[in-house]
Amino acid sequence: MSSKVKLVADSGSTKAEWCLMDGKVRKTYFTQGISPYFLTSVQIEELIQAELVPQLGGVRPDQIFYYGTGCLAEKNQKLLHKSLHAVWPQAKIAVSHDLMAAARALCGREPGIASILGTGSNSCYYDGKDIVKNNPGLGFVLGDEGSGAFLGKKVLQYYLYQTFDDEMRFRFDQKYNTTRDEILDRVYRQPLPNRYLASFTPFLSENRGHYMIENILEDGLNDFFFNHIYKYSESWTVPLHFTGSVAWHFRDVLEELCHLYELQLGRILKNPMEGLTVYHEDE
């Protein structure tokens, strides 16, 4: 009996990663991201037909496991299901959200705390099957502690308040060549300010070792622990897992914080796909 061909998707609003699983063979493809808040079902279908179907070379999946931004809302799940069904009417389709993707990728079928630290941040307690608790985020204006937007905002504060020493100010100016007016315009008047703020996190990676950079990282990630991890009583009895670009690039800081607070550190993945393919192997 031939094995089922599976298609696993992990989509943000800017980029979507698709992994085709045919037996032991894994092939990864990328398309632009899919946001059900900005695209109709017909537009999503057209995007998939134009960008993904040609890459698959005629292979038709039997099962589709789609995880995406905006898919916590039931109406958006139905919209994605409709679009995917229009492209592959023969396939069995399951649609879920990005936090479930993180939970399944990181925890598998075991209980744990799953956290996303990327452009934004989120977390949950997962009992091995369902997300039981979710400490709701407040977005990049009021919250998103530990995220790229949060850390990038700190970089800009240090720069604009002239907290950086001369060396750091020089390095910032050399890298970004921007002005106070331009920064404020991008943050308060232009679209997608959270992504703009997050674009300053590479400055932290490139200047590790400077005490001001280390302060920003330790304070920003500690704020995530204090405002989110600590709100789950299970944090002291199950592993803490992380995914996302911030978690991956600053994993040493997460390791130090877990050691400091005597918490069990689990897996740290750059993105969920590696864990999702393992999770769906036996389905």
Score class of each variant (00 low, 15 high):
1 M>N: 08
13 S>P: 00
17 E>S: 11
18 W>Y: 14
18 W>A: 09
25 V>N: 15
28 T>I: 15
29 Y>C: 00
33 G>D: 07
36 P>F: 06
39 L>Q: 15
39 L>W: 09
42 V>P: 00
43 Q>E: 15
44 I>H: 08
47 L>Y: 08
54 P>C: 14
55 Q>F: 04
56 L>F: 02
58 G>R: 15
58 G>E: 13
64 I>E: 03
65 F>C: 05
66 Y>H: 03
69 T>N: 01
69 T>H: 00
70 G>S: 03
71 C>D: 01
75 K>Q: 13
76 N>D: 05
81 H>Q: 10
81 H>K: 13
83 S>H: 04
90 Q>F: 09
90 Q>T: 12
92 K>I: 07
93 I>A: 06
96 S>V: 02
102 A>Y: 01
102 A>D: 05
103 A>D: 02
106 L>Q: 07
106 L>R: 10
110 E>D: 07
111 P>K: 15
112 G>V: 03
120 G>K: 04
121 S>I: 03
123 S>A: 08
124 C>I: 10
126 Y>V: 02
126 Y>S: 01
127 D>A: 01
132 V>C: 10
133 K>C: 04
135 N>F: 06
135 N>L: 07
137 G>F: 00
141 V>H: 01
147 S>N: 06
153 K>T: 04
153 K>R: 14
156 L>N: 11
158 Y>V: 03
160 L>I: 12
160 L>D: 07
162 Q>R: 14
163 T>S: 12
166 D>T: 06
167 E>F: 06
168 M>I: 12
171 R>M: 12
172 F>G: 07
179 T>A: 10
179 T>F: 11
182 E>R: 06
186 R>V: 04
186 R>N: 12
187 V>D: 05
187 V>T: 08
188 Y>M: 10
189 R>M: 08
192 L>C: 00
195 R>A: 10
198 A>C: 07
205 S>G: 01
207 N>V: 07
210 H>L: 15
213 I>T: 13
214 E>D: 15
214 E>C: 13
218 E>K: 03
220 G>W: 11
222 N>Y: 04
228 H>S: 01
233 S>K: 15
233 S>L: 11
234 E>Q: 05
236 W>F: 13
237 T>R: 11
238 V>I: 14
240 L>K: 03
241 H>M: 13
244 G>T: 02
245 S>M: 10
247 A>Q: 00
249 H>Y: 06
249 H>G: 03
251 R>H: 08
252 D>S: 09
254 L>Q: 06
258 C>W: 05
260 L>R: 10
261 Y>I: 04
261 Y>H: 06
261 Y>K: 05
261 Y>G: 03
264 Q>E: 15
267 R>G: 00
268 I>K: 01
269 L>F: 06
270 K>M: 05
272 P>W: 03
274 E>N: 12
276 L>V: 11
277 T>G: 05
277 T>P: 01
278 V>N: 05
280 H>E: 05
